[in-house]
Amino acid sequence: MKTTRTIFQQGNHKWVAIVRDPKRPGYLVDTNEYLVTHGGEGMLLDPGGSEIFPAVFSALSAEFDPSALTAIFASHQDPDICSSLALWLEFNPGLRCYVSWLWESFIPHFGGNAQTFVALPDAGQEIPLAGLPLQAVPAHYLHSSGNFNLYDKTAKILFSGDIGAALLPPGEDRLYVEDFASHIGHAEGFHRRWMGSNEAKRRWCERVSRLEIEQLCPQHGAIYRGADVQRFINWFDELPVGIVND
């Protein structure tokens, strides 16, 4: 079973990170899921692959009624992001899945119907959660060609999807980045190979630098907080990407 860690709380407004599963088979990439709750409603960010559904579900159930999940935010179309969609829909068939318009007709291969999906335009849009304004921030080509982050200006949290992801060696399972210099070594290979465009990266770095971010939460690896957020953005800005030695 995965563990849940509350990373922000203000009244009934809460961010919960669902992380680390000691029973996860080694051949599945480790993922972080995030639950945002507000006013009795819940939104699950990148709910994960179907094989890890039991672990995510049970951890989430300890915190929140899965039937009260009203939305899923899918940063992009990868199987580790949302292949569990059909299983979540079993608990609330009316839940909506927010995803880039690019994937609107691809993700239904994982489940859902015409009513399930809300197509996000390239420029992003506001996604309200029981009155809490959340913002879908464009992050195209990083790595997916239709890709979004989710920003919560009240909590000052940016869910960054695969950006900031680190593939940590076994045993390194801290929730937060403690030593940026050693941590980023586990992120470099991933960013070089997965991220597709230097131009898109430049624009993303400029865009998110304008946001007030206290925690930058990736879908793999540890969370960047405080000064490490800007450290990461600067590091990413400098990193050449989109090149492969084949």
């Binding site: 039991p54 672990a55 579900f57 049970s58 159930s61 899965p66 299983l87």
Partner: peptide
């Protein structure tokens, strides 16, 4: 997958 979820979270609706 749902059976595994129900075993891990017996109190849930799984």
């Amino acid at each position: 997958l749902l059976r595994e979820a129900a075993e891990l979270a017996p109190q849930s609706r799984a």
